[in-house]
Write a protein that binds this DNA or RNA. Structure first.
Lengths: 345, 345
DNA sequence: TTGTAGGCGTTATCAA
DNA sequence: TTGATAACGCCTACAA
């Protein structure tokens, strides 16, 4: 039987209103009674009841807008599943949610969506493009009391309410660590990166190279190329690389385009090449099953969606971030044996 | 603005009481009005408000008892952290929680604790010993309306409300898969298992051997021994094995006693040996850092605690299990690069 | 500066 | 078979 405002009021011989004013720092209360109430609250170990707050919060009619670069992007399906799980909670608090989707990473498009969201929403969940224009808008929204939670992408701006994404440098380092454990003394490595315009892809490459240089300076980095997350481009480039560098015995794919890279390797009959990649889309699952991809560094996509929404709801209702957020999003290693091929991650 | 009982009542021209009776199947309602109300509820997309239920549930004064074989067991510290996180929720619903701890795996001791818990609790979270006596008691409790959620250990009894633990066979297979990826053509493997009396430890060994036989039939399994999760025993046995089988180049440690095994390997100057283990206790972290343990298969200990408590609370209050439970507990692979050395897991 | 009262959605009790 | 009402804990508007 935890302490309630009512119990404290009775004990202090004042009304519930006064206790409420004290505990929520609303002012207009006699310093003496304030002190007395705080004392009693402490002694009784008062913590506000979440259900009570939740119920009362319903009248406020909060709105959350979500902006995602998710159109035609396989990876985001799971993120959206997680968002939906969080939206059931939003519903309980009478919070309305709008999901605004865009295709690709065009700054102007995202800026327009942010303008729209800024007009209606009390909080924004943003799959941010790392660009000064966006950073400006986010800062401006904050100054007008609209907080932003970034999701999946890292943004070079520290003043967001929360950043729900993986440490991409660690992701790259983890891929490198795996290669180090699987390769022998001779290593000729190719990096197939996504796009130089995406901060996370760059960070993965940085983490990967740093780790190799530190732990295996004898390894040879042959070349790196961009796939632009495009299957055809990835296929053609990988094919060329394999013929010009037949000594290649390891490939790190930072993001999309895995199907192209893997097909080139498969067709060349180079099952000996150690392929490490990121995420766990259907394509990745397929090639892990086939044994072409030896391991993948995944990033809890569903959880990212859920935690972002859950944190937004929680913040609006309770004025603070939930404990669950502080575990962070982790870089998880999956191989054939511990991968769940049924669920798409 | 989701539909509420009040809105449905207004629309149907009846009182909230009647709507409540229909939606919660309490009987005593005219079939015609029942049908009408169900129709309206469906049309309005009614889902009960969790905060409302939560608030009302407070008056019931539920009790949850937790029984853990956790005394002097490093691994359980994180499980208990998770339980505590879940207990904050229990508090909100006015649910009282008692944690009963025991040392080791004595069936009589656990049976006594179960008897005690059965008298006071509405639901039990049980770190079950897989023994017919325990299974009987759990079945008996169920028949008296007290549900059990097992935590961390697998129990050969399917009728529990939920089983919050990892797939141990998959855990062993994952360790085997990792070895296959790290070893070359020659493999002489030693298995250091915990205790034959612990179901999970056996299952890990089964999963490990099955996987090796299937994917690397050419590998050689030299021997296996029990550590009884005892550091000294593990050290002495491993030392012997190393001198009688110097060809050993891989060791799988299923559970406790890692410090003993690793020390023996370290002292023998055998840094070439590939060591794979389970969990992420401080000891494991230390040897991962040193590079003796190449990888460990972890089991989300904190999450196990949280999900067990959260599910119990959720079930008592809402009469069903939460969505979050269905992601399950996963076997996660950690190497030096993606391990969090600050937090103890 | 303080108290009162009504409402958020659900449940339970009592009266009709 | 149904309706009315109070309660759970918190918040807010208004009255004193």
């Amino acid at each position: 039987m935890p302490a309630t405002i009512k119990m404290i009021a009775e004990r202090a011989g004042v009304s519930r209103g006064t206790v409420d004013r004290v505990l929520n720092h609303r002012g207009n209360v006699n310093p003496d009674t304030e002190k007395k109430i705080l004392d009693i609250a402490r002694k009784m170990g008062y913590t506000p009841n979440q259900a009570g707050i939740a119920l009362a919060a319903r009248k406020k009619g909060y709105i959350i807008d979500v902006i995602l670069c998710s159109v035609e992007n396989e990876f985001f399906e799971e993120v959206i599943n997680g968002l939906r799980r969080g939206m059931q909670e939003a519903d309980n608090f009478g919070i309305r949610v709008n999901i605004l989707e865009m295709k690709g990473y065009d700054v102007i498009t995202q800026a327009d969506l942010l303008d729209k969201a800024g007009k209606e929403a009390d909080l924004i969940i943003l799959n941010a493009i790392n660009d000064p224009v966006i950073i400006d808008k986010v800062a401006d929204l904050k100054s007008r009391g609209v907080e932003t939670i970034t999701i999946n992408t890292s943004l070079e701006y520290d003043d967001v309410l929360a950043a729900v994404c993986v440490d991409y440098v660690e992701s790259g380092a983890t891929a490198a660590g795996l290669m180090g454990l699987m390769l022998g003394d001779v290593a000729n490595i190719v990096i197939a990166m996504g796009s130089k315009n995406v901060l996370g892809h760059n960070e993965r490459v940085v983490g990967f190279i740093e780790n190799i240089k530190k732990r295996h300076p004898e390894y040879n980095l042959i070349t790196s190329f961009e796939t632009k997350d495009d299957v055809e481009l990835a296929y053609n480039t990988m094919k060329e690389v394999l013929s010009s560098h037949p000594e290649t015995n390891a490939v790190y794919i930072t993001s999309g385009g895995q199907r192209g890279v893997c097909r080139a390797i498969e067709e060349a009959g180079r099952k000996d090449i150690i392929v490490i990649t990121s995420d766990g889309t259907r394509t990745v699952q397929e090639y892990v099953k086939k044994g072409i991809i030896r391991a993948t560094v995944m990033q809890e996509a569903e959880k990212q969606g859920y935690e972002a929404m859950h944190s937004g709801v929680y913040y609006l209702v309770y004025g603070e971030l939930p404990d669950s957020l502080f575990g962070g999003i982790r870089n998880e290693i999956y191989i054939q044996e511990n991968m769940r091929f049924d669920t798409f991650i």
